[in-house]
């Protein structure tokens, strides 16, 4: 026993090294996570957490009585859906393209450019969208006007366009970045497979469909699951910066709602309940997606 203790004691530096990190996770993740208890309280700023009254499921019930909340849930879902439809295949396509490019310099150059948007903040990206689509000076309206004589359209102020535009801006910003994941998967495919296919006289299309795609399918499944888990998690930065008062009703999502109603109007408990609901739906989606993926492909996230 004492020799055991001694051994442990000789390792004390390891335990000391772990202290700051663990402390961080406790202070900045676990304690805030425990704070979801607020959702069952009527949190009052003056009384504080200990003194505020407990109210059970009141806020959860209230949530579904608000028509405003239902609209926001609908917005969140349809933006998530559009992002999935548009955003999922595009990086795969880019990766397949880049994989076919044999000239190293061209490949590196276009990769550098496609990566670039990922590094920018949503403040900048959304402003680029505003500028490019601007009715007065945007290049899109310039070109459309020049080609067809069409009257300028203020795209960012159209209620019916804001959700697709949010999805498209996501595709524009993140596709190049996400494609790296698929490129990694593609580069690990053995070249012998392609050589064998060459001997059988397979064309490029056949090789892509019969070799590349099936072999990166596991990666696609994992990426799909991650996307599913984040279905309701369109970023606050993203949507908040894309919106303007004219399209608020169609673009407001759970994350912006929590900020607006929770922090700015001080409805702490109610929006904590909303956030909890969001996380639960996310959890259900990822577990359900995992189950489905395993049924279909025999592979899943958690093995």
């Amino acid at each position: 026993m004492s020799s055991n203790l001694k051994k442990l004691a000789s390792r004390y530096p390891l335990y000391i090294m772990a202290i700051p990190g663990v402390l961080f996770f406790v202070l900045f993740y676990l304690i805030p996570s425990a704070g979801i208890l607020l959702a069952w309280q009527d949190y009052n700023f003056i009384k504080g957490f200990m003194e505020s009254p407990w109210v059970g499921w009141k806020h959860f019930r209230k949530m579904f009585e608000y028509s405003e909340f239902l609209q926001i849930l609908k917005n969140t879902l349809s933006i998530g859906f559009l992002k999935l439809i548009l955003g999922f295949p595009f990086p795969v396509f880019i990766a397949l393209l880049l994989n076919e490019v044999k000239n190293h310099q061209i490949k590196k150059f276009s990769q550098t450019i496609m990566f670039m948007p990922h590094l920018l903040s949503w403040v900048v990206v959304s402003q680029i969208f505003y500028n490019v689509l601007s009715p007065d000076s945007g290049i899109v309206n310039n070109v459309l006007h020049g080609l067809t004589g069409m009257e300028p359209v203020f795209f960012m102020a159209k209620e019916e366009l804001i959700q697709p535009l949010i999805a498209i801006s996501h595709v524009w910003k993140e596709s190049g970045y996400t494609s790296v994941v698929y490129l990694a998967a593609l580069s690990s495919i053995s070249p012998e497979l392609y050589e064998a296919a060459d001997l059988d006289g397979a064309g490029k299309m056949t090789k892509i469909l019969r070799i590349s795609l099936p072999l990166i399918a596991p990666t696609m499944v994992i990426m799909f699951l991650i996307t599913m888990g984040r279905f309701l998690e369109t970023g606050f930065d993203h949507v908040y910066n894309m919106l303007n008062p004219l399209v608020w009703s169609k673009g407001d999502i759970l994350n912006t709602y929590i900020y607006r109603v929770g922090l700015q109007q001080g409805k702490y408990s109610f929006t904590t309940a909303v956030g909890l609901f969001k996380s639960l739906v996310g959890l259900v989606l990822i577990v359900g997606g995992n189950w489905g993926a395993r049924k279909i492909t025999g592979r899943g996230f958690f093995k």
Partner: peptide, 22 residues
């Protein structure tokens, strides 16, 4: 510790309680 890290990896911090703790 890894369990904690993975928990934090999967779940986002709830905004309001996070704000109040900080």
């Amino acid at each position: 510790i890894l369990m904690i890290v993975i928990f934090c990896f999967v779940f986002q911090r709830p905004v309001i309680p996070y704000f109040l703790t900080v």
